[in-house]
Structures are given as C-alpha cells and as structure tokens.
C-alpha cells in the first residue's frame, strides 16, 4: 500500500504542518471571531428588540388605563349633569304646575262669582218683571192697584216654593 511507504512521510508531514497552521491561524484570528461577532450582534439585536417591545407594551397599557380612567370620569360628570338637569326640570315643572293650578282655581272662583252675580241679577230682573206682570194682571183682571210690597212678597214666596 502506498500509505506505508516511509519516503512519502516527510513531505506529507511538512505540508500537513504548513496547511494546518495556516487554517488554524485563519480560523483563530479571522473566521471564528467574525462568526461569533455576527451571532452576538444578532442576539443583542433580538434582546434589544424584545426589551423595546416590552416597554412599548407597558406604555400602551398605561395609556389604556389613563384613557379608561378619563372615560370613567367623563361618564360620571355626564351623569351628574344629567341628574342636575333632570332635578331642575322636575322642580320647574312642579312650580309651574302649582302656579297653573292656583291660577286655574282663581279663575274658576272668579267665573263662579260672575255666574252667581249674573244669576242673582237675572233672578232679580225676573222678580221685578214678575212683580210688574202680576200688578198689571191684577189691575187688568180685578182693577185693583195691588200694593208693590204685597206683590213682591207673593212673588218671593212662590219663587221659594218652586225652587
């Protein structure tokens, strides 16, 4: 076998030493540091991005909480305003109701008084007419001038009996 030829040993050993040393030096000084730098940089970038993402998420959470708080405050305020307005309207409505009712009662009373007055007047007129008519009738029928007080009394009595 060619592998066991001792004359081929020294050139192979020499070039093995040379090439292996070159490869070792290139790996040690250049290739491996470069690879490790690349991978380290990537890891750092990933870590930094993750940190940033976490802080942004935290920030978003805070903003959301603030927003919700503000919303709750505004909602409370709105409810208060609505309640206030409702109360005011209710009070106003009650007041107007009362005023209207009072006015209505007042007017009703005035109207009733007017009606009563008119009725009295009308009744008085009727009695006067009835008295005149009775005196005229008695004068025509029996030719007696009946005294006015007597006729009025009779009319009053009849009216009272009828009513």
């Amino acid at each position: 076998m060619p592998q066991f030829d001792p004359t081929a040993f020294t050139p192979q050993l020499f070039w093995l030493a040379v090439t292996f040393s070159v490869l070792f030096f290139a790996m040690w000084r250049f290739a491996l540091p470069r690879l490790s730098n690349i991978m380290e940089a990537r890891q750092q970038r990933i870590d930094a991005d993750l940190d940033k993402a976490a802080s942004v998420k935290e920030e978003a959470g805070r903003v959301l909480a603030e927003y919700e708080q503000a919303q709750a405050e505004v909602r409370d305020q709105a409810a208060a305003v609505i309640k206030q307005a409702g109360d005011r309207m209710a009070a106003e409505s009650t007041a107007r109701h009362e005023a209207f009712r009072a006015e209505l009662a007042e007017r009703t009373r005035a109207a009733e008084q007017r009606i009563a007055a008119a009725k009295d007047e009308a009744l008085a007129n009727i009695k006067t007419v009835a008295v005149e008519a009775a005196r005229a009738a008695t004068a025509k029928l029996i030719g007696v001038e009946a005294p006015i007080e007597q006729v009025r009394d009779a009319v009053e009595a009849t009216a009272r009996k009828r009513s």
Binding site: A8, P11, Q12, F14, W15, L16, T19, F20
Partner: peptide, 11 residues
Amino acid sequence: DLSFTNSALFM
C-alpha cells in the same frame, strides 16, 4: 524531502 505532492495540493 519536503516536495510538494498531490497530497500537499489537496491539503
């Protein structure tokens, strides 16, 4: 003998 051989070439 430090000749450049086919072995050295492939190394």
